[in-house]
């Protein structure tokens, strides 16, 4: 009787793990131009988006582009990749921008704008919902 229940529990556990992992990561993708052969890891991506690193490992000038605040990818990216809230990010940039130390990343209004901009710009790096990714861009991280 007791043993009979075990497979059901395991099954439920597998189901729920699958659901939650789909919700919590691999939803969004960091994308670059297909010809960009640089090395990427979460630390490099974070530094580029915080204005602490202005070049890719291939020497190309990096142009980070943010999704509009209205897109779900914006909060997901800042939360999971940068580790800061919207307010913390904006306070961080307010200091840099108004002391002339760095320019705030450009903002693009939609996933399709992001895909089309990144696909024609060798230095661009941005992020979109993974379902929006096309073969015109290269995925370098998922979150």
């Amino acid at each position: 009787m007791w043993n009979n229940k075990k497979p059901v529990k395991t099954f439920l556990l597998i189901i729920s793990t699958t659901i939650f992992s789909n919700l919590s990561f691999a939803d969004m993708s960091v994308i670059v131009h297909p010809d960009n052969t640089s090395t990427f890891n979460p630390e490099i991506i974070k530094k580029i988006f915080l204005g602490k690193k202005d070049k890719f490992t291939n020497g190309q000038v990096a142009i980070p582009m943010n999704a509009a605040e209205s897109l779900p990818s914006f909060d997901a990216f800042n939360d999971k990749m940068i580790g800061k809230s919207r307010t913390q990010i904006n306070a961080y940039w307010a200091r840099l921008v108004f002391t002339g130390k760095a320019d705030m990343p450009k903002v693009l209004p939609s996933d399709s704008d992001i895909i089309s901009t990144v696909s024609v710009n060798q230095g661009a790096i941005s992020y979109v919902d993974s379902s929006s990714v096309t073969d015109k861009v290269k995925v370098v991280a998922n979150f």
Binding site: N90, A91, A94, R95, F98, T99
Partner: peptide
């Protein structure tokens, strides 16, 4: 350098 930027 940013004493006037209260938001920061």
């Amino acid at each position: 350098e940013f004493s006037e930027v209260g938001y920061a």
